[in-house]
Design a protein around this nucleic acid. Sequence first.
DNA 1: CCGGATCCCGATTGATACTG
DNA 2: CAGTATCAATCGGGATCCGG
Lengths: 129, 129
Amino acid sequence: METTSDQHWDVYLKNCPCRDVLDLLANKWTALMLGALRRRPHRFGELRRAVEGISQKMLTQNLRALERDGLITRTVYPTTPPTVEYALTDLGTDVSRHLVALSTWSQANFSRIREARETFDSRVVEPVS
Amino acid sequence: METTSDQHWDVYLKNCPCRDVLDLLANKWTALMLGALRRRPHRFGELRRAVEGISQKMLTQNLRALERDGLITRTVYPTTPPTVEYALTDLGTDVSRHLVALSTWSQANFSRIREARETFDSRVVEPVS
DNA sequence: CCGGATCCCGATTGATACTG
DNA sequence: CAGTATCAATCGGGATCCGG
């Protein structure tokens, strides 16, 4: 019994609605945010500090989008000052595996990448004689 | 013996240079381009058609960046009209696994995502009565 | 004070030519 | 065919303002 996908979507097609999902996921901030939330739930400010350099605008915007798509939950505790906690859903936990893999890969292979860059740059910027 | 990473990089740090790599990888177009190249090498125009909706500008720009980082190769055959073939390197093949996983996940879980969106939207846009 | 919305501006992106 | 150049539109970052 098919409880999940009842149709085949193709991200390579221009108008396939599932491309919006890829667009949300294949995003630097999403990768870092879900990676942080994977370790434990975070409050807004905690997340802001965990993902160094993200603006609160992007943080808010991505949190909304991720909540809307059912990847994270947003829980408000009516305290003063307000406490808002974000946590991964099961669906969010599932994708986060792949995003963490990307982050980890970037870290692990940065040395190689940097070498490639140096080689490329030295071959390109010096076309003289 | 450590032949690869000699230092630990952290994508969560604002100024860590490896974040640039994550930024290149965690990108909709990169995911689709490397996914297409994973199947087989493509010429410029082929890739343009394979990744529906990408502009030549973004295609060129991303191809250059990926070549610079050693993830793909660019081979020019001196024919008329010009033939330029792009192909994954070993490094590129390695990352592409994770990117393909993201694309596949987006396709496979789109139904669930869409349901989540409908639930979210109906809860939010109708705060009346 | 925390979480978040808004506005303004510079940086990216996309669509559309144009070239070797 | 495989790009480059140009310009309009959109997006991201920073500062500011607001409600609890």
